[in-house]
Design a protein around this nucleic acid. Structure first.
Lengths: 257, 257
DNA sequence: TGAATAGTGTCTTTAAGACAGTATATC
DNA sequence: GATATACTGTCTTAAAGACACTATTCA
């Protein structure tokens, strides 16, 4: 189950697959916090993760990319399947949503219209560089903004569970595959990437051991620049060795911290 | 995309979700080989993994259980989501299948009937105890049998890829979670479980190191029985410490071999 | 007693984990 | 020179990995 996007022409139901939606937990990292991009479909007063319908001529990945682009302005976004959700109960939210939808749009869409039918939700998560995302709003999703993953607003449907599942999948994923390239700016410092790992894993790490392991597998390149950030020693800037990084993305690498 | 199950009444399309199928890679272990249960939907001459449609009042997991029961006679089967497949191309198979279907059933179902529409496939794999499975056939799926995973017959749609993806997911999964309870008989020997691991991982393991690690985390209980199997020393029988095993299933455990 | 498989112990090497003092930038 | 953060090296402990001989069953 997901939000209803304003770009969907109600009359044109034939061009979308029925009973399936794509839901994408878009994550970003900012101010030492993990953020998730949420939208509030009017007229409802609860939030959802970003999502939408699948066109009949696009793959689910293409669908997810199109929807992500419409919310973030980003192309070639990092996408990771993590789970599908298919409980038979739609819950009260869909009923209330249907009623409010008709009220606010002055329409009388029947309860059994495909828009309010049961949906199987295909769960992706995306990792984005926070500062590159230009949050897009639409008429239906008037509110669309970043939320700290630790302080979520009231969520529609089972979307709180979906976020938790995405986070759990990400934590499992990062044991075997490098992360950070999508979440950090091109140049970053060791304290920054360490804090990213600490934030996602939810625990503090020993900076010496962390650095040792990261440098050993050689995914970082030390630059000849420092970052000036206050009345203290300036940290060196690094970037990822993208080639090595991509190798590890396909072959896997031990990154247990 | 998946096979069409004979239990589906064509006229009763309203009770099934459209554009979605469940596909379940049912795995078993026998004769030191990993087997996969495949079916051949008549009149087609290619094989598929087991699968079917989702009823509108059941969850995807319930759906997968119902379909697995109809093929294996097993209840409470071990089910693991691993991926969803949603390419927009249906390929030639579906066209040929539609034609042959009409020919053989003496019907004229139109090409755009929902049965032959595009489907998103929800991928599960199941681990089963080979000897407990009573393979069920049906009028449409006249052939249903185990195949060695190394010698697959011609596969319909993208089902060869689905099997490979399931196997890859299983290999990743077994690094963090114990397996074997569903694949082995209740009592088994150390050489048997080691060979199971070797078979799935596709490499040989040192028996001393393997035993050491398995015994250390304490998921095995040594029984006071041996298994008589020929003109040589009889191996001891073991069973899983199910409580410990289940703990590890939820919390995870390092089982890198 | 020979053939076949089961079962066990030690050493080496590598990685993990704990730990604290020096360096640098700015005010 | 006070303050705040960056940076680095060593020791201890645990696990991984390599390795080979003895034990048991039965034909």
């Amino acid at each position: 189950m997901t939000h209803k996007d304003s770009t969907i022409p109600l009359s044109d139901s034939e061009t979308y697959l029925k009973n399936v939606t794509v839901d994408n937990v878009i994550l970003g990292y900012h101010d030492k916090e993990l953020k998730v991009l949420l939208q509030k479909p009017l007229p409802f007063d609860k939030w959802t993760v970003t999502g939408g319908y699948i066109k009949s001529n696009e793959s689910v990945e293409e669908s997810a990319e199109r929807i992500a682009f419409s919310r973030t302005g980003l192309k070639n976004i990092f996408l990771q399947q993590f789970q599908f959700f298919g409980s038979a109960q739609r819950g009260l939210d869909i009923v209330q949503y249907h009623e409010l939808y008709n009220q606010s749009t002055q329409t009388k869409i029947p309860k059994d219209h495909w828009l309010f039918d049961r949906f199987i939700s295909l769960g992706f998560y995306s990792l984005t560089e926070f500062s590159m995302v230009k949050v897009q709003k639409s008429s239906i999703n008037q509110d669309c903004q970043w939320w700290s993953i630790n302080e979520l607003p009231p969520m529609m449907f089972d979307h709180k569970l979906i976020i938790e599942a995405a986070l759990k999948a990400l934590r499992l994923h990062m044991v075997h595959f490098p992360i950070g390239y999508e979440l950090l700016p091109e140049k970053f410092t060791l304290p920054e990437i360490q804090n990213l790992y600490e934030t996602i894993l939810g625990k503090t790490l020993d900076n010496r051991n962390f650095t040792k392991k990261l440098m050993k597998n050689g995914i970082l390149i030390k630059l000849k620049e420092t970052k000036k950030i206050g009345a203290h020693r300036s940290p060196w800037l690094y970037k990822f060795d993208k080639e090595r990084y991509d190798d590890y993305l396909s072959t896997g690498v031990d990154l247990i911290f």
